[in-house]
Simulated assay, not measured.
Amino acid sequence: MQNFTNEPIDIAALPRYEAVNLNKLHSKYWKVILINILLVYTTITFSAVFGVIFIEELLDMALILGGLIVLLLFFTLFFAKISFNKRGFAFREHDVIFRNGIISTNTMVIPYNRVQHVAVHEGFISRFFGLAKVEIFTAGGNSSDIEIPGIAIEQAKNIKQLLMGKIQKQL
């Protein structure tokens, strides 16, 4: 019969995920973000213009509405750039790390033995720039646990192969 032990773990001796140098998203992904923002704000601007044309009461507010759209665009670009710069990922021997966030930083660490499925998605605009998104799924959910956008397509496919190999070793 074995003696049961439950010794405390020295927390200071645990490996620090913060010390890992994270890979940045591909620089072309910033262009994808800008095009997406441009498409959204073009739609908003056309809607506002048509609203002003067809609803006479809005004509007096056209300058205010235009100013609000420009101000909102400025804040969107500002926060999008901060978000782009703060995102990072790393694949280590036993886990994957993904960091994102604007005001608060979220860092997810998922051990490979928890990964159940991996998908690579190429959106229309991302594909034009040769980029893809890697989605990593664990048990118990319909959506992915980590979505890493802005990865070169070949690198994304290699990451998928790496993770699928890790999944196969678990079986």
Score class of each variant (00 low, 15 high):
94 H>Q: 11
86 K>R: 11
92 R>L: 14
117 H>D: 15
103 I>L: 13
122 E>Y: 09
103 I>W: 13
125 I>A: 09
116 Q>R: 01
97 I>H: 01
107 T>Q: 11
97 I>G: 00
109 V>S: 07
122 E>N: 14
127 R>K: 15
125 I>K: 08
120 V>F: 09
128 F>E: 04
97 I>A: 05
102 I>V: 14
126 S>H: 06
93 E>H: 05
124 F>R: 12
113 N>F: 06
85 N>V: 07
88 G>C: 05
102 I>M: 03
94 H>A: 04
118 V>M: 10
112 Y>N: 01
85 N>G: 06
122 E>R: 14
88 G>Y: 02
124 F>I: 15
92 R>T: 11
116 Q>K: 04
110 I>W: 00
127 R>S: 15
127 R>T: 15
100 N>W: 07
91 F>V: 09
97 I>F: 05
118 V>I: 13
97 I>D: 02
102 I>Q: 02
114 R>Y: 01
119 A>Y: 03
103 I>C: 02
112 Y>M: 02
94 H>K: 11
99 R>Q: 15
113 N>V: 03
112 Y>F: 13
92 R>D: 07
128 F>R: 14
87 R>W: 06
125 I>V: 09
110 I>Q: 00
122 E>S: 14
106 N>R: 12
86 K>Q: 09
87 R>K: 13
127 R>Q: 15
110 I>N: 00
88 G>R: 05
102 I>D: 01
120 V>Q: 08
89 F>H: 13
116 Q>S: 01
96 V>H: 08
122 E>D: 11
125 I>Q: 10
121 H>W: 11
113 N>Q: 10
115 V>M: 06
126 S>R: 08
103 I>E: 05
116 Q>G: 00
96 V>S: 13
127 R>H: 14
121 H>E: 14
123 G>M: 10
89 F>K: 10
88 G>L: 06
120 V>G: 11
107 T>A: 05
87 R>D: 04
120 V>W: 04
87 R>L: 03
93 E>Q: 08
105 T>P: 00
103 I>P: 00
95 D>V: 04
91 F>M: 14
102 I>A: 03
110 I>M: 01
128 F>G: 11
111 P>L: 06
